[in-house]
Simulated assay, not measured.
Amino acid sequence: MVFKTKRDMPVSLIMAFLVLLIQADAFVPFILGNSGGWSWTIFGMMTFLNVILLWSFIDLKYVLDEHHLYIKAGLIRSKIPYHSIDKVIQKNKLFSGYRLIGSRKTITIYYRGGFGHLVISPMEQKQFIEKLIEKNPDIIVEYHKK
């Protein structure tokens, strides 16, 4: 089952600001009057970085497979076996941990291995958590307001 990410305005504005800032930095060598080979290399690298950031933000989804939770965000891929998930915490927190989100309303998944935890923002959080519990009934679920 595929869950799309929830998107809200503050996170989208932060992403837009970041992309514009990176792209503005790509033009600095040209503004300073240097249009040599390194300027074009820097411009190309910064533009490529922006493409990767936008792709990761736009193509963000969470897939519940038979045995694994897959998180796909552009080139970033995470694969977490259900049996390794210990705890799920639902909270509203923007800045913490390894995040693949589009919203401030998040779910933190604690698991054994890898980074140890992952912060995601599926659109239908309640249904997402219910499906995770169907896959692994031993998962502890906590709800926090902050």
Rank of each mutant, 00 (worst) to 15 (best):
residue 19 V to Y: 00
residue 19 V to K: 06
residue 19 V to P: 10
residue 20 L to V: 14
residue 21 L to V: 14
residue 21 L to K: 07
residue 21 L to P: 00
residue 21 L to I: 13
residue 21 L to S: 08
residue 21 L to M: 10
residue 22 I to F: 09
residue 22 I to N: 11
residue 23 Q to K: 02
residue 23 Q to T: 06
residue 23 Q to A: 11
residue 24 A to V: 06
residue 24 A to E: 00
residue 24 A to T: 06
residue 24 A to R: 00
residue 24 A to L: 13
residue 24 A to Q: 01
residue 24 A to M: 04
residue 24 A to N: 03
residue 25 D to F: 15
residue 25 D to R: 03
residue 26 A to W: 04
residue 26 A to D: 02
residue 26 A to V: 03
residue 26 A to Q: 02
residue 27 F to S: 01
residue 27 F to Y: 06
residue 27 F to P: 00
residue 28 V to I: 15
residue 28 V to K: 14
residue 28 V to N: 05
residue 28 V to E: 05
residue 28 V to D: 02
residue 29 P to V: 04
residue 29 P to W: 11
residue 29 P to K: 07
residue 30 F to A: 10
residue 30 F to S: 03
residue 30 F to R: 07
residue 30 F to M: 10
residue 31 I to K: 12
residue 31 I to S: 00
residue 31 I to Q: 02
residue 31 I to G: 04
residue 32 L to F: 03
residue 32 L to C: 04
residue 32 L to Q: 13
residue 32 L to Y: 10
residue 32 L to P: 01
residue 32 L to S: 13
residue 32 L to R: 13
residue 32 L to N: 13
residue 33 G to T: 06
residue 33 G to I: 00
residue 33 G to A: 08
residue 33 G to F: 07
residue 33 G to E: 14
residue 34 N to Y: 14
residue 34 N to G: 07
residue 34 N to A: 05
residue 35 S to Q: 12
residue 35 S to F: 11
residue 35 S to I: 08
residue 35 S to L: 12
residue 35 S to E: 09
residue 36 G to V: 05
residue 36 G to R: 01
residue 36 G to Q: 07
residue 36 G to W: 04
residue 37 G to R: 06
residue 37 G to A: 14
residue 37 G to V: 11
residue 37 G to Q: 04
residue 37 G to W: 12
residue 38 W to A: 09
residue 38 W to N: 13
residue 39 S to K: 05
residue 39 S to Q: 12
residue 39 S to I: 08
residue 40 W to K: 04
residue 40 W to F: 14
residue 40 W to V: 05
residue 40 W to M: 07
residue 41 T to P: 00
residue 41 T to V: 09
residue 41 T to F: 07
residue 41 T to G: 02
residue 41 T to W: 03
residue 41 T to Y: 01
residue 41 T to I: 14
residue 42 I to R: 09
residue 42 I to S: 07
residue 42 I to F: 09
residue 42 I to G: 04
residue 42 I to V: 12
residue 43 F to C: 03
residue 43 F to Q: 00
residue 44 G to H: 01
residue 44 G to R: 08
residue 44 G to K: 09
residue 44 G to D: 00
residue 44 G to C: 09
residue 44 G to A: 15
residue 45 M to A: 13
residue 45 M to Y: 13
residue 45 M to V: 15
residue 45 M to P: 02
residue 45 M to G: 03
residue 45 M to D: 02
residue 46 M to K: 09
residue 46 M to P: 01
residue 46 M to R: 10
residue 47 T to G: 03
residue 47 T to M: 10
residue 47 T to A: 12
residue 48 F to A: 14
residue 48 F to G: 10
residue 48 F to M: 12
residue 48 F to L: 15
residue 48 F to E: 05
residue 49 L to W: 07
residue 49 L to Y: 05
residue 49 L to T: 11
residue 50 N to K: 09
residue 50 N to D: 15
residue 50 N to L: 10
residue 50 N to P: 08
residue 50 N to H: 06
residue 50 N to A: 09
residue 51 V to G: 06
residue 51 V to D: 03
residue 51 V to R: 08
residue 51 V to C: 02
residue 52 I to Y: 14
residue 53 L to Q: 03
residue 54 L to V: 15
residue 55 W to M: 06
residue 55 W to R: 10
residue 55 W to G: 09
residue 55 W to Y: 13
residue 55 W to C: 10
residue 55 W to A: 13
residue 55 W to N: 12
residue 56 S to Q: 11
residue 56 S to K: 10
residue 56 S to D: 04
